[in-house]
């Protein structure tokens, strides 16, 4: 049975001075990470956003030492691009920048008046009981590479799936010299082909 969870996070941005309220619902789908890839003049930038559940199995704020360790280990994984993405050797890419951190969804949420709608699949083995005050959390990693041969960047593999068993799918958007495109990768088809 697929344990893909779909839920919506309600993010309320209160604008106190204007006494005007903006309600904005962002989509957040468990099991699905998004990746953005841009290539220009030998520069390759890869941005990854993954739901916390996919990576560490929970999205509440890490409070116990175990949870904190898990988050720290995950961030360490993200800081090692080779375990997340594989680039063709022929392209000769060198890492120039790497950044990884955890976005938690519960900043500025002291009002306590936001909707929180969880739609859990059966067989859910994570404990979301402590999730009451928090929204969803996302891991965000970005990499920048300098490549010798941009034209050799024809495929990008994602060993990412092997690392994080809860990750089911990656929605990729890319822009290269030949245009923009999108692709869906899954754990059994974890390679992106760039035209």
């Amino acid at each position: 049975m697929t344990r893909t969870l779909t839920s919506l996070a309600a993010i309320c941005l209160a604008l106190p001075a204007a006494a005007q309220e903006t309600r904005d619902l962002g989509a957040h789908e468990h099991g699905v990470s998004t990746v953005e890839i841009a290539v220009e003049n030998g520069m390759l930038e890869i941005d990854i956003l993954s739901p916390g559940v996919d990576i560490v199995g929970f999205e509440y704020e890490a409070s116990t030492p175990e949870d904190k360790d898990a988050v720290e280990a995950a961030i360490r994984q993200f800081l090692d691009p080779e375990s997340i993405v594989t680039l063709p050797d022929a392209a000769g890419c060198r890492l120039t920048e790497v950044l990884a951190h955890l976005h938690t969804g519960d900043h500025d949420h002291d009002e306590g008046d936001h909707d929180h709608d969880h739609d859990h699949a059966e067989g859910e083995d994570h404990d979301h009981a402590e999730d009451e005050s928090g929204g969803h959390s996302e891991f965000h990693a970005s990499y920048a590479f300098a490549c010798e041969d941009e034209a050799a960047l024809t495929t990008i593999g994602f060993p990412f799936f092997e690392l994080f068993g809860n990750a089911r799918e990656i929605d990729v958007q890319y822009v290269t010299a030949s245009g923009a495109g999108a692709a869906e990768l899954a754990s059994d088809a974890a390679e992106l082909t760039l035209e």
Binding site: E36, A38, V39, E40, M43, E45, D47, Q173, V175, T176, A180
Partner: peptide
């Protein structure tokens, strides 16, 4: 109704 945008660098599109 809408606007078309051209960027200085592809890297900044996203």
């Amino acid at each position: 109704t809408a606007a078309l945008i051209g960027m200085n660098s592809r890297l900044q599109i996203f």
